[in-house]
Simulated assay, not measured.
Amino acid sequence: MLKPNKDSGFAHLSKIHPCLGGEAHHNFGRIHLPVSPACNIQCKFCKRDCNSNEERPGVANGILDPKDAVDTVRRALELCPQITVVGIAGPGDTLATPQAIETFKLVDKAYPDLVKCLSTNGLLLERYAQDIYDAGVRTITVTVNGVDPKIQSKIISHIVLDGKIYHGEEAADILIKAQLRGIAKISSLGVVVKVNSVLIPTVNDEHIEEIAKTVKEAGATLYNIIPLIPQHDLSHIPAPTCEQLDKARVIAEKYLGVFRHCKHCRADACGIPGKEDLSLKLYGVINERLETFSHG
């Protein structure tokens, strides 16, 4: 089966995907379906919570059942006809449980013309790359905060892989290698890969060039550097300044195109980024409480 050309695909997608292109960011919307309940890594900046008032990743009102996804997309399009993207960004990791892929299959059948976009920490990306592609996903975001185990071990507390918990540099090494293999495999299928990095002063702020170079070699097309939200185990580290953020982006731009419009979206965001968030109108309050979260 022929696969789409990734470069030509990106040129088209960047015009209609609000998280890939600046012009699209201001004119098109996305709907995030919060169907993923669990996470397989613990980031030190990840604060678990369930509410309707914080605008950040890893937060949603509750978990949506995959069987309700198609109707949710229909209602989202009624609220915001400019929606072009159906995304799943948590609130846990999208590949830690089967709900995300199951949801994309249902949505792709009902809305084949909408762009499907998945966000993941990448630990299981290689394992599920073909399933992701077969479910209609053509854009993916992988959060890579370090490609050196010594640095990555300062950012994650542990990972859980096939029922076993790993800590420290061993966990970091497993995660990094899995991320890079996953990026290589999914990009080889023609899927556009954007890499997110959380910029953490004194931890990975001098490491961005190495990340950009490494993920580019693995097959990434676009880079998004977002500022740390000081919380959880990294609450003592201040958010990067505008100058630090700009410096990192300029350095990264030597290797990859850099997306500069990220809004730290919730896992149940709906609408055009930066404008009215329609998630409460769409979801109300879902009764099932969340158990685990991922920064995504």
Rank of each mutant, 00 (worst) to 15 (best):
C19G: 07
C46M: 04
R30I: 14
H12I: 15
C50H: 05
E55M: 14
Q42I: 09
A24V: 02
S14P: 01
L20H: 10
C43A: 08
S14W: 06
H32Y: 14
H32Q: 11
A38V: 14
N27G: 10
E55V: 15
N27A: 10
G22W: 06
R56V: 11
A11Y: 08
N40T: 05
G21D: 07
A24M: 04
N53Q: 08
H26N: 12
S52P: 00
C43H: 02
S52D: 08
I41N: 00
G29Y: 07
I16P: 02
N51F: 06
H17P: 03
L20P: 03
K44A: 08
L13G: 10
N40F: 08
C39Q: 02
K15A: 13
L33C: 04
R30N: 04
A38K: 15
Q42E: 10
K44C: 05
K15S: 10
E54D: 14
A24F: 12
P37D: 01
G29C: 09
A38F: 13
A38Q: 13
I31T: 08
H25W: 05
G29S: 08
V35P: 05
Q42R: 15
C39N: 09
R56G: 07
L13H: 11
C39L: 02
E23D: 13
L20F: 15
G29E: 07
R48L: 08
N51S: 12
N27R: 15
K47F: 05
N40K: 10
H26T: 13
H26K: 15
S36N: 11
D49P: 00
C39V: 02
G21H: 05
G29A: 11
H32D: 01
H12F: 15
C50N: 14
G21K: 04
S36V: 03
H32L: 10
S52I: 13
S14F: 02
N27C: 07
P34R: 06
P37L: 05
L33F: 04
R30G: 01
I16T: 12
S14H: 09
C39H: 03
A24K: 09
P37K: 03
F45L: 08
R30V: 13
I16G: 02
H32S: 07
C46F: 00
C50S: 14
H26M: 08
A11L: 15
P34F: 04
H32V: 01
H32F: 14
F45H: 11
G21R: 01
C43F: 03
E55Q: 14
E54T: 14
H25I: 06
C50D: 03
H32I: 01
H32E: 07
G21T: 01
C39R: 05
C46W: 00
A11S: 14
A38W: 05
E54N: 14
I16Y: 10
E23F: 13
L13N: 09
